[in-house]
Amino acid sequence: MNTTPTIRPARPHELRAVAELRWQWVLENEGTPVTTRAEFVRRLVAWAGEHASSHRCLVLVRDDAVIGMAWLAITQRVPSPRAPERAAGDVQCVYVVPDERDTGLGGRLIDAVLRLARDLGLERVTVHSSTRAVPAYTRHGFAPSPRLLQAEVGSRPGT
C-alpha cells in the first residue's frame, strides 16, 4: 500500500515495536547491548508504562508498521513567583528506520515533538544530539545556548 506516514502518540500495543527501534538504534550507534533483545523489549515496555506521565512517545507509522519514534521527556521545574507552574522538555531517542531516512521524516518527528511541547506549555526543549543529526535539529529551530551547560557524571573507566 505504501501510504503517507502519520505521526501520533504511541499506542500500548506498539511499544514492543518502539523497543525494537531503540534496540536497532543502539546497535547502529553504540555497539554491543548489555542485555538480551527480549529482556530489553520487556523492560522498555514496562518502563514506558511506568513513566507515561513524564515521557511521551510519538511514533511514525506507515501501513500499520512503526517506522520511527521520538520521545519527549518532561521535567517539572521549580516554581517561580512569575510562573508558578513550569516545565521543560528534552527530545530523546529520535529514530527512523534506515530505508526511510533522508526523506524528511525525521524532521517531521522533530516538528511533532515541538508541537507537543508547545501544547503542553513547556518553557523550552533541549536535545543531546548525535553529530549526524545536528543539522536536522538546527533546521527545525534548535540553536546552541551559551547558558546551557552539562557535566558528565556517569562512571568513567579508572574513576
Results as ranks from 00 to 15, higher is better:
residue 1 M to R: 03
residue 1 M to H: 06
residue 3 T to C: 02
residue 3 T to N: 10
residue 3 T to W: 00
residue 5 P to N: 07
residue 6 T to H: 05
residue 7 I to C: 02
residue 10 A to F: 03
residue 10 A to S: 10
residue 11 R to L: 13
residue 18 V to C: 13
residue 18 V to G: 03
residue 23 W to S: 07
residue 26 V to H: 11
residue 28 E to S: 09
residue 31 G to M: 08
residue 34 V to K: 10
residue 35 T to E: 09
residue 35 T to L: 09
residue 37 R to I: 03
residue 37 R to L: 06
residue 42 R to Q: 12
residue 44 L to T: 06
residue 45 V to W: 14
residue 50 E to Q: 14
residue 52 A to E: 15
residue 53 S to T: 14
residue 55 H to W: 06
residue 56 R to H: 14
residue 57 C to G: 01
residue 58 L to K: 03
residue 61 V to H: 14
residue 64 D to R: 15
residue 66 V to Q: 06
residue 70 A to K: 06
residue 73 A to T: 09
residue 75 T to R: 05
residue 76 Q to N: 11
residue 77 R to A: 13
residue 78 V to N: 10
residue 82 R to F: 11
residue 83 A to E: 09
residue 83 A to G: 02
residue 84 P to I: 08
residue 89 G to L: 12
residue 91 V to Y: 12
residue 93 C to H: 04
residue 94 V to N: 01
residue 96 V to D: 01
residue 96 V to Q: 08
residue 100 E to A: 14
residue 100 E to W: 03
residue 101 R to D: 08
residue 103 T to P: 00
residue 103 T to R: 14
residue 104 G to Q: 10
residue 105 L to A: 08
residue 105 L to R: 09
residue 109 L to T: 07
residue 110 I to Y: 04
residue 111 D to V: 10
residue 112 A to E: 02
residue 114 L to Y: 02
residue 117 A to L: 07
residue 119 D to E: 09
residue 122 L to M: 04
residue 124 R to G: 00
residue 125 V to C: 10
residue 127 V to E: 07
residue 128 H to F: 12
residue 131 T to H: 05
residue 135 P to G: 02
residue 141 G to Y: 05
residue 142 F to N: 08
residue 145 S to D: 15
residue 149 L to S: 10
residue 150 Q to I: 08
residue 153 V to S: 06
residue 156 R to Q: 15
